[in-house]
Amino acid sequence: MNDVVIYAVVSLSVIGVASAVILYFVAQKFKVFEDPAIDVVEKALPGANCGGCGYAGCRAFAEALVRSGKEKQTLEGLNCPVGGNPVMAEIARILGLEAEEKEPQIAVVRCNGTPANAPHKVAFEGATTCYFAHSLFAGESGCPYGCLGLGDCVAACIFDAIHMDPETGLPVVNDKCVACGACVDACPRNIIELRNKGKKDRRIYVCCVNQEKGGPARKNCSVACIGCGKCVKVCPFDAITMENNLAYIDFEKCKLCRKCVEECPTGAILEINFPPRKAAAQPGEGKPEKVPSEGVEKNENSNA
């Protein structure tokens, strides 16, 4: 009986020691040289592996940073949207370089097709993915550009930063957003855009991506951009451009003067996080109000 125990202990120990010796030599022989800076840089990164930087993960990004730092002496074009400026500054310090400041950004949903603004005309049924619904029809409201509300963006987000609002049926972005861009890629209709966060989180943007002419656009949604061009004229900074019946505000040029918001006849331009105005103190800031009809009618006539 005792013999068995001894044999077992001895033989297992011998196998263990032998394996350890073999492994040691193999590890020595096949050692791969890796820049120790990569490990340090990787530690400095957030470790979310979100892919927002355009690389397969934080490790791959760290490798790219170190390579770029070594070979080109610059970190230009490389940015971790999750960590933002502090992390990039830290990495630059590790690699002994200058970091370029970048405006923090946030995902912005450019559709306001709530059931009140864009009443549903048909009911969709099927696999709950926007991608499929997009291939099937224009959407429950009939707007071929508007949000389908099935949450491909929500499924794509790994930061818990975008959720469907059950009342409006539209996705809402919260503070957790790091502007990784996953939702932008996921949306089959390119409704989500990364825009600068802006001073005090204040933003002005055209909350519509409809490129139809005014008439058909308004038929489906009361807060659609009808391409009237009033905002373009009123903007003192040339920040607004008009293309395919759709206004676009360049966030680099916009000085947040809010003139366009007042001018927009359909309320398609939204202002976010501004204090309420004195004259038209409406509750629910940023929400579009009743639509003055003058500009719309003119536009429809010009199309007919």
Binding site: V122, A123, L136
Partner: peptide, 9 residues
């Protein structure tokens, strides 16, 4: 008439 239902075949 209720809203028409749209779905894939």
């Amino acid at each position: 008439m209720d809203a028409l239902v749209v779905s894939g075949s």
